[in-house]
C-alpha cells in the first residue's frame, strides 16, 4: 500500500469497564480510497469509528487524521476538524424536528455564509444524487429506513468532506435499497475523490466496493489486504468470517455451562 495516508491508527487500546475492546490496533487508511473495516458483530467496529471521530478517547495509542492527533486537540479544534468529516450513522440520525431539505442544509447553514439560493441549489444537487429530490418536504418520521439512510448520506457529503465514515450502511436494507446504497457509496467516492471508511459485516456488498480491507477480531487486526488477497487468506479467523463458516475460532455460542447440566440443574442453580 503506497498511497498517501489520510488516517493512521497507532497501537490503539480501549476498554469498556473490564472488557478490553481493542488491544493494540494499527490501521492505515489511504487517501481517496474506500477502506472497509470488517469483523463479526461485537468486535467494536462502531467503537473504532467513534474513536476515529474523537467521540471516545482511547486508553492508549493515537488516531492521526491528516497528521493531527484527534485526541490531543482542544474541543474547538476537534469540532473544526470534524467539519472536514462526514459520518453516516447506522440509524441515519436525522434531526427529527427538521424536514429532509433542512436536514441536508443543516451543515451548510451552520458552517458557511452561503446565500439561501446557493444552499438550495447545493441541497437539491445532493438530494438528486441520492434520488430523493422529490422527498425534500417530508419529515424523517415519514421516511423508510432506506430513504432515511440516503438522506443521511446526502447530509454527510453536504460540505464535500475529505473523509466519510460509514457505520454499517447496509444493515436492515431491502435488496433494492442495499444495491442503491452500494452504488451510491462507490459513486460518491469516485465523484468527490474523498476517503471513505466503511464499517460493515456485509461481506459481499462491502468487498464489491472496497479498495482495501481490515478484518478485526479479538481486539486486534486479524488480517488486511485487498478483497482479492483476503478471499484466499488461510488464517482461520479470516476464512471463517469471509466465507461465513459456522465452525471456527469465533464460537456461535456465548460462553455458558454445559447444555446437558444446565437443563437438568435444579431451578436457580445456573440462573
Amino acid at each position: 500500500m503506497n498511497d498517501p495516508i489520510m488516517v493512521e491508527v497507532k497501537d490503539l487500546h480501549f476498554a469498556r469497564g473490564n472488557t478490553e475492546v481493542f488491544r493494540g490496533v494499527d490501521l492505515q487508511i489511504p487517501l481517496g480510497k474506500i477502506t472497509a473495516i470488517m469483523g463479526p458483530s461485537g468486535t467494536g467496529k462502531t467503537t473504532l469509528l467513534k474513536l476515529i471521530g474523537g467521540q471516545l478517547t482511547p486508553d492508549r495509542g493515537q488516531v492521526l487524521i491528516g497528521g493531527q492527533d484527534v485526541h490531543e486537540l482542544p474541543r474547538r479544534s476537534l469540532f473544526k476538524l470534524r467539519r472536514r468529516m462526514g459520518m453516516l450513522f447506522q440509524s441515519g440520525a436525522l434531526f427529527s424536528d427538521l424536514d429532509v431539505f433542512e436536514n441536508v442544509a443543516f451543515p451548510l447553514r451552520v458552517h458557511t455564509e452561503l446565500p439561501n439560493a446557493m444552499i438550495r441549489d447545493i441541497v437539491l444537487m445532493k438530494l438528486q444524487a441520492v434520488g430523493l429530490r422529490g422527498a425534500r418536504h417530508l419529515m424523517p418520521s415519514e421516511l423508510s429506513g432506506g430513504m432515511a439512510r440516503r438522506v443521511a448520506l446526502a447530509r454527510a457529503v453536504a460540505l464535500d468532506p475529505d473523509l466519510v465514515l460509514y457505520d454499517e450502511p447496509f444493515v436492515g436494507q431491502d435488496p433494492i435499497s442495499m444495491g442503491v446504497l452500494v452504488q451510491l457509496i462507490k459513486k460518491v467516492n469516485q465523484a468527490l475523490g474523498l476517503t471513505a471508511i466503511v464499517v460493515s459485516h456485509d461481506i459481499k456488498e462491502t468487498l464489491s466496493i472496497a479498495d482495501y480491507v481490515y478484518i478485526i477480531a479479538d481486539g486486534k487486526v486479524m488480517s488486511h489486504g485487498t478483497p482479492q488477497t483476503l478471499d484466499v487468506d488461510d488464517d482461520a479467523h479470516v476464512r471463517q468470517f469471509v466465507h461465513g463458516e459456522p465452525d471456527g475460532p469465533v464460537p456461535f455460542h456465548y460462553p455458558a455451562p454445559d447444555f446437558y447440566d444446565d437443563i437438568l440443574a435444579p431451578a436457580g442453580q445456573f440462573s
Binding site: 469540532f79 473544526k80 434531526f95 451552520v110 458552517h111 443521511a152
Partner: peptide, 22 residues
C-alpha cells in the same frame, strides 16, 4: 434524551456543531 438515544446529538457533534451550544 430521545435525541441522544436516536444519535442526533452524536451526529450533530460529527457535523462539527457542539450540542452544548446548539
Amino acid at each position: 434524551g430521545l435525541m441522544k438515544a436516536t444519535e442526533q446529538l452524536t451526529s450533530m457533534e460529527m457535523i462539527g456543531v457542539d450540542p452544548l451550544r446548539r
